[in-house]
Simulated scan of single mutants.
Amino acid sequence: MKIAAGLCALVPLGLVLLGFGLPRAEAIHPPFAPPSNQLLLGADDIGQDVLRVLAHGALTTLGVGLAAGVLATLLGLLVGGAAGYWTGLEPPLTRLTDLILAFPRLPLLILLALYLKPDPLNAVVILALFGWPSTARTLRPAVAGLREAGYAQVARTLGGSGLYVLFRHVLPQLTPLVMVNLLLEIRFGLVAQTGLAFLGLTDPSVPSWGLMLFQAFQQDQTFTAHYWVWTVLPPALALALTVLALSLPLLGDERRLDPRLRRDT
């Protein structure tokens, strides 16, 4: 699974490198020009090199997903760790977590995008603020179970503070669980950003895979002719391979993280 995930990840990683190395695309080619030696993936409806737009779109889509996933996981790690380790903080933090979990993230993200400035930073902040509860809810019982482990009790007996024991002895034991939640949040972040762009709720001057799909679907000739082959397939395949690269490692960790699956074997 991990080898297949690595192969899938080569596409988005290669596009990111191209995005840093290639200049921004300009509308200097004939609209819907087919692929050629000069235009490896052809041109879009306004004459931009699709490969360059795809590469710079990777910086936006993957950047939003990565930033939102990391920030949401860190917030969930702090809240879930505090709620699981300090029993006095558990009731209010658990109620806060359940309250935010009650809001559907994607519809709320769409609603907020209608009223806020449609830039990547706002998308990252919104995704992180409403994405941490799932990580916190997963980590809280795990931290509570490890709080009374022998090594944690010994560290407290030797004078270790609560923060020291939590971050030095408890949370490192949960690294696989944290990594799974991180991959899930990154995956949700990039899919959500693509969805917002596909709905036309992002800045049209900032290239992204969702914006490429949005612009392609706005043109009638995209599907009446064969232009969809180089205007729709590249961003769709790039997104699919990226999601697959983030999903395949989770399949390998299920048996290790779920005791019920280990008992079945």
Rank of each mutant, 00 (worst) to 15 (best):
M1H: 06
I3S: 14
A5W: 09
L7K: 01
L10T: 11
G14F: 00
V16L: 06
L18F: 07
L18R: 00
G19N: 00
F20Q: 08
L22M: 05
E26H: 13
P30T: 12
P30H: 12
P30D: 06
P30L: 15
F32P: 02
F32V: 00
A33P: 08
P34E: 08
P34W: 03
S36Y: 05
N37I: 08
Q38I: 06
Q38S: 03
L39V: 05
L39G: 01
L41Q: 03
I46E: 07
D49W: 04
V50W: 04
R52F: 09
R52P: 09
L59Y: 05
L62W: 13
V64L: 07
A72M: 11
A72H: 11
T73Q: 11
L75G: 03
L75V: 10
G76M: 01
L78R: 08
L78V: 15
G88P: 01
E90S: 07
P91T: 10
P92M: 10
L93G: 11
R95A: 15
L96F: 12
L96I: 02
T97N: 14
L99I: 02
I100P: 00
L101S: 13
A102N: 02
F103M: 12
P104H: 06
L111K: 13
K117G: 07
P118N: 05
P118L: 09
P120G: 13
V124A: 04
V124K: 01
V124H: 02
I126A: 03
L129P: 14
F130S: 04
G131E: 07
S134I: 06
A136F: 01
A136E: 02
R137H: 08
R140W: 05
P141L: 11
P141Q: 11
L146F: 12
R147H: 14
E148Y: 12
G150E: 15
Y151P: 01
Y151V: 01
Q153V: 06
Q153W: 01
L158V: 09
L158K: 13
S161L: 08
G162C: 10
G162M: 09
L163W: 11
L171M: 05
L177H: 06
L177I: 04
L182P: 03
L183W: 09
L184D: 00
I186V: 15
G189M: 08
A192V: 00
Q193L: 08
A197H: 03
A197Y: 02
F198G: 08
L199W: 09
L199Y: 08
G200E: 14
G200K: 15
P204G: 11
S205Y: 11
V206C: 07
W209D: 00
W209Q: 01
G210L: 13
L211D: 00
M212H: 00
M212S: 00
L213Y: 08
L213H: 07
L213A: 05
Q218Y: 07
Q221T: 15
Q221C: 05
F223M: 15
A225E: 15
H226N: 08
H226S: 11
Y227N: 07
Y227I: 03
W228K: 07
V229I: 13
W230P: 02
W230K: 04
L233P: 11
A238K: 09
L239W: 09
V243I: 15
L246M: 10
L246E: 10
L248W: 09
P249A: 05
L251Q: 12
E254L: 14
E254T: 12
R256V: 10
R256Q: 14
L257E: 04
P259L: 01
R260M: 04
R260Y: 01
L261A: 03
L261D: 06
R262M: 04
D264N: 08
T265Q: 04
